[in-house]
Design a protein around this nucleic acid. Structure first.
Length: 734
DNA sequence: AAGTGAACTTAGGACGCGACCT
DNA sequence: AGGTCGCGTCCTAAGTTCACTT
């Protein structure tokens, strides 16, 4: 086990630190630094020889795998439970916040010793509730403002309903139609082509760029690039060497010969006036009057009307990204080797148009031509171009609420449901394969175990130096895991620490089976930190194998499957029909959160998080005082009823009772909100909701729980999932 | 069977706006 | 009336997968 441990991973985090937070940047950078350390050994890793070694003699016999393992059994020994571990993980890693806020928050959670125990909490909450409000709106205090516009509100409501109905009538119910033959995506496609950003406006004469203290009038191309840089001056990208060097190199390419001769050092450049002009423009935009804003809005609307839609098989469909990406400086994520490079302005000559032959072919802007017009109905894009920084293709495609996207989405979940019926067999198989004599099969088994249990991404190989150094399952390197035979009372713990997609850190400590642990030891034998953990495996081999087990099965299907099944199970466990609506929604969010944790969907904690938490706490405190007051008033009123036999007094008691009740409900709702927000600090729910959770699970849950769907899905999401909303009954089961 | 490119999904951050509060 | 805050939308980068080529 020769691992240059100390040299490769100089970690050991103070316990209060936030290992999973990505914002502090330090973690990210540290991890990036760490992983870029053995660049040399990484060079060797690119040349991957996929020989099939035998490992017969290297490994002692493993205990027999259980022949057939049910999901339930797995759950019992904690193997496939995402929720508990995941949540705990996040909590453990919560950054230290000031003790006072901590104390305050403790108060919110009064009476809940174990925050992780949802069942108990739900029970307690339930006890606290006096009565469930029937109609949320009805119990709102009637303010004078409300009274005034009551009729108007009614009218607006009615109008809304009508619009909704109208929209519903217009909706293309494509899911009720027959599918096209294989490969054909449309029969007719017509659109206006993409919308180009406005031309560059040269600087006014009073705004100057200075080199070595002297004003220099730049050529238009060089000036535009200079402005891109100046606009980012308040960002710390512009202080990074990689960014500056990339920018300067590309900028010089835009310069005239004379300019290139003169401007040889970025440090001698003074963008001050350009920067100030930019700041003023931003300021002016912020101060635009309401009327002007309205004008701009209407202009945008018009552009949207004209370019934002297409006709696809007789139906008007929204386009997702009809605007051509404006030029600027490339901002990759994380430690991107290409950050700062110039993203060029696209011309119609760069754009390929795709549409029906017999359609009205879009006109290129005056004086221009398209690169090409083609009529390929086996693809879904309307326009495409090659982007100059990475050299990859980009596309104009339809909005998520379109038939083309919806159908694909639906299909994705159907594939995941098919996995459900054979997942147990697949699991049993990869458990067997952990003992295979062939190294490649063993590695495949361990990789699959990770992908299934931890919802890791496949992990394609990436070209070094082209992108930030991030990995997925198959591209994990030895330096990304640490094996602990024993850790915190658990055996065979694997500690993961690597940067995944978008340079989001994945940090997790997971107990694994003995066989997996031993295999990992074997894989790491005689390797250095920068070497591939799975040197006999890649994603295409893995996916090839998976497809042979079930048509359509690839690594990412496991993510979809495990996400959706987790949601379904969590919803079943957490929610009760007897809960009131806020509680039900909290349960839903928690189920959603379990999935987000499983899939490692993180977000930067909102900048104003601490403040807004404190504000909410203050509101809760004042509400508590109000409640106490209301209670004592009620008591007083009750007393008076007894002494005086006045009928009026009874009414007063009733009134006070109602006040107390209302106070309690409001307090409860706020407390739930606080809990929800706190738990959500670093977790992004949107990604899983939009991409991994079969919407039919949520629709069925809403129907069963009698929760309005609007509480779960906003308008955009309801549009995207229209197919699911329409077809799902109460008894849907993923 | 490795390499490459096309096509499509998944991802987090920036930003603006409107709801809500003071 | 003015300020705050959270949500929704936009933006585009960064993945996965598959087909094709050599």
């Amino acid at each position: 086990m020769a691992r240059p441990r100390g040299s490769v991973r100089p970690r050991e985090r103070p316990s209060g630190d936030a290992p999973r937070s990505k914002k502090p940047g330090k973690d990210k950078e540290e991890a990036a630094r760490r992983s870029s350390k053995d660049k040399k050994s990484k060079a060797s890793r690119k040349v991957k020889t996929l020989k099939t070694e035998t490992c017969e003699n290297e490994m002692e016999d493993f205990a027999r795998a259980p022949g057939h393992v049910s999901v339930k059994a797995e759950t019992e020994d904690g193997d496939f439970v995402a929720e508990k571990k995941g949540r705990k993980r996040v909590r453990e890693n919560e950054p230290a916040c000031s003790t006072s806020t901590l104390k305050k928050r403790k108060k919110v959670k009064e009476g809940e010793e174990d925050v992780g125990d949802d069942g108990k909490r739900a029970e307690k909450m339930q006890k606290k509730i006096i009565k469930k409000p029937k109609e949320e709106k009805a119990e709102q205090p009637v303010s004078s403002k409300r009274k005034k516009t009551k009729e108007e509100i009614e009218a607006a409501k009615l109008l809304k309903m009508k619009m909704k109905e109208e929209e519903e009538k217009q909706r293309w119910r494509w899911w009720e139609e027959e599918k096209y033959e294989d490969g054909v995506k449309w029969k007719f496609l017509e659109h206006k082509g993409p919308y180009f950003p406005p031309e560059y406006q040269p600087l006014p004469d009073n705004i100057k760029f200075y080199y070595n203290g002297e004003a220099v009038k730049l050529s238009q191309a060089a000036e535009e690039a200079a402005l891109f840089f100046a606009q980012m001056l308040d960002h710390d990208y512009t202080t990074k060497d990689v960014f500056r060097n990339n920018f300067f190199r590309d900028w010089r390419k835009e310069m005239s010969l004379d300019e290139r001769m003169l401007i040889t050092d970025l440090n001698n450049c003074d963008f001050g006036e350009l920067f100030r002009m930019h700041r003023e423009k931003v300021e002016a935009r912020r101060n635009t009057s309401k009327e002007d804003k309205q004008v701009i809005k209407e202009a945008n609307q018009k552009i949207m009307e004209e370019y934002g839609y297409c006709m696809l098989d007789h139906h008007r469909e929204r386009i997702g990204n009809f605007k051509i990406e404006p030029p600027g400086l490339f901002r990759g994520r994380g430690d991107h080797p290409k950050q700062g490079m110039l993203k060029k302005r696209l011309q119609p000559e760069d754009i390929i148009i795709n549409c029906s032959k017999e359609s009205q072919i879009p006109e290129p802007p005056a004086g221009h031509k398209w690169k090409e017009v083609r009529h390929d109905n086996t693809v879904t894009w309307l326009a495409s171009w090659t982007e100059n920084v990475q050299g990859s293709c980009k596309y104009v495609m339809l909005n998520a609420n379109s038939k083309l996207k919806g159908e694909k989405d639906w299909e994705k979940y159907e594939v995941a449901r098919r996995l459900k019926v054979c997942v147990q067999q697949i699991r049993a198989q990869y458990k067997q394969d952990l003992k295979s004599k062939q190294m490649s099969i063993r590695q495949r088994a361990v990789a699959l175990y990770f992908i299934d249990k931890l919802a890791l991404r496949a992990g394609n190989e990436k070209e070094e130096g082209e992108t930030a150094d991030t990995v997925g399952c198959c591209s994990l390197r030895v330096e990304h895991i640490v094996l602990h035979p024993e850790l915190d009372g658990e055996h065979n713990v694997v500690e993961f620490d690597f940067l995944g997609k978008d340079c989001i850190r994945y940090y997790n400590k997971v107990p694994v089976t003995k066989k997996v642990f031993k295999n990992l030891k074997l894989f790491m034998n005689n390797k250095e930190g920068g070497d591939d953990l799975f040197d006999c495996l890649n994603t295409s081999m893995l996916n090839k194998y998976l497809t042979s087990l079930m048509p359509g099965l690839t690594a990412k299907v496991f993510r979809t499957y495990n996400a959706s099944i987790t949601l379904q199970e969590q919803l079943k466990d957490l929610s009760n029909m007897s809960d009131n609506q806020p509680e039900k929604l909290l349960s839903y969010n928690r189920a959603n959160r379990a999935v987000a944790v499983l899939c490692n969907h993180q977000r930067a904690p909102p900048k104003t998080f601490e403040q807004s938490m404190a504000n909410l706490q203050a509101k809760i405190d004042s509400r508590k005082e109000q409640l106490a007051l209301a209670k004592s008033e009620l008591k007083q009123a009750k007393k008076e009823v007894k002494t005086s036999s006045d009928g009026k007094q009874q009414a007063v008691v009733e009134k006070k009772k109602k006040a107390v009740q209302r106070c309690e409900e409001q307090l409860l709702r706020m407390e739930i909100q606080a809990t929800d927000r706190e738990e959500n600090k670093q977790i992004a729910l949107g990604t899983s909701k939009l991409n991994y959770l079969d919407p039919r699970i949520s629709v069925a849950w809403c129907k069963n729980m009698e929760v309005p769907l609007e509480k779960i899905y906003n308008k955009t999401q309801r549009d995207k999932f229209a197919w699911a909303i329409d077809m799902t009954d109460l008894d849907f089961f993923f």
